[in-house]
Simulated scan of single mutants.
Amino acid sequence: MQVRAKGEVGLKVSLERVDQEDMVIFRNLYSLYLHDLSRFTENLEIASDGSFQFDGLEVLWDKEGFSPFFIKHSDELIGFLLLLERPLLKKDNDFGINDMFILNKFRGKGFGQQTLERLFMDKPGKYFVIELSENRPAVMFWKKIYRQFHIRFDEREESIDDEPCLVQTFTVGADHPY
């Protein structure tokens, strides 16, 4: 998948499905993501090997409905997106953006927006996003995305794994003008 944001000459983002043989690379990126997330929660602990770990990472390739993607700029790895899909999601939503991570040096340059623009064009439907309420950067990022893409969303507060969270749901259509 390739996408170029409006007004951004030369910026290209691609989403590339993560194959199981690239699990170590994904695990390393996920550790960086969890490290960033640990700033907003007490529920993440560093492992004895000095990393933050996603227990059961193998399930992403063993169970249908988990779709991990690398986010790349040109051919450089800049982050990942973990999408939940059917049949894993059984009711109200077609997709869930479980996690999205852009490496620090690439943040604030439009890559997150470009990634979501491509995702929404390729996979229209009903989405949900969950953010830790304390994660103000994520909350502000998503509110900016909704404004920029003219997306109407519903939001509710919910406790998930004993964490106060915001759950947002929205629908994007194939004909939505991004």
Results as ranks from 00 to 15, higher is better:
Arg27Pro: 02
Glu8Thr: 10
Tyr146Gly: 03
Glu158Pro: 10
Asn43Pro: 02
Leu44Lys: 06
Trp61His: 03
Pro164Asn: 12
Arg136Ser: 12
Ile71Trp: 06
Glu117Lys: 11
Asp94Ala: 01
Leu32Thr: 05
Asp99Arg: 06
Leu82Ser: 00
Tyr127Asn: 10
Pro87Cys: 09
Glu157Val: 04
Ile97Met: 00
Val59Lys: 13
Leu81Met: 00
Val129Gln: 06
Leu57Glu: 05
Val172His: 00
Gly96Pro: 01
Arg136His: 07
Ser74Trp: 10
Ile151His: 07
Glu16Pro: 00
Val3Pro: 01
Gln113Phe: 15
Ile25Leu: 13
Glu21Arg: 12
Phe101Gln: 11
Leu81Ala: 12
Lys144Thr: 12
Ile102Asp: 07
Glu58Lys: 10
Glu163Phe: 00
Gly110Cys: 02
Pro87Met: 03
Lys90Val: 12
Arg17Tyr: 13
Lys90Thr: 14
Leu89Ala: 05
Phe70Gln: 09
Lys144Val: 01
Leu37Gly: 08
Thr115Ile: 07
Phe153Tyr: 13
Phe26Tyr: 10
Leu11His: 13
Leu116Ala: 09
Ile102Glu: 02
Gly79Met: 07
Ser74Lys: 14
Leu132Arg: 08
Asp22Lys: 08
Leu32Glu: 14
Gln53Gly: 07
Leu88Cys: 07
Phe101His: 09
Gly56Asp: 04
Phe101Asn: 09
Glu117Phe: 11
Lys91Phe: 09
Asp75Arg: 11
Trp142Pro: 01
Lys12Pro: 07
Asn43Trp: 11
Lys12Arg: 15
Ile78Phe: 01
Glu134Gln: 12
Asp161Leu: 15
Gly50Glu: 08
Leu77Phe: 10
Val24Ser: 14
His150Ile: 03
Asp36Arg: 01
Tyr146Cys: 03
Leu166Lys: 02
Val129Thr: 02
Asn93Leu: 07
Val3Arg: 06
Phe66Glu: 09
Ser31Asp: 05
Ser133Met: 08
Arg107Ala: 01
Arg147Glu: 15
Asp94Val: 02
Leu82Asp: 02
Ser38Gly: 05
Lys63Phe: 09
Asp122Leu: 11
Met100Phe: 04
Asp22Pro: 00
Gly110Pro: 02
Glu131Leu: 04
Phe80Asn: 03
Met100Cys: 05
Gly7Lys: 02
Met100His: 00
Lys91Glu: 12
Ile71Met: 03
Val172Phe: 00
Arg152Val: 00
Glu85Leu: 04
Lys6Trp: 14
Asp154Glu: 13
Asp161Arg: 15
Ala5Asn: 14
Lys12Asn: 15
Asp122Asn: 09
Leu60Asn: 06
Phe54Gln: 12
His150Val: 14
Pro124Ser: 10
Ile102Tyr: 02
Arg156His: 01
Leu119Gly: 02
Ser14Arg: 15
Asn135Glu: 08
Gln2Cys: 12
Leu77Arg: 06
Thr169Ile: 03
Gly110Ser: 03
Leu88Tyr: 11
Arg39Lys: 15
Met23Trp: 04
Glu64Phe: 04
Gly96Trp: 03
Glu45Leu: 15
Phe128His: 02
Lys72Asn: 00
Ser51Cys: 12
Glu163Thr: 05
Pro177Ser: 08
Glu64Trp: 01
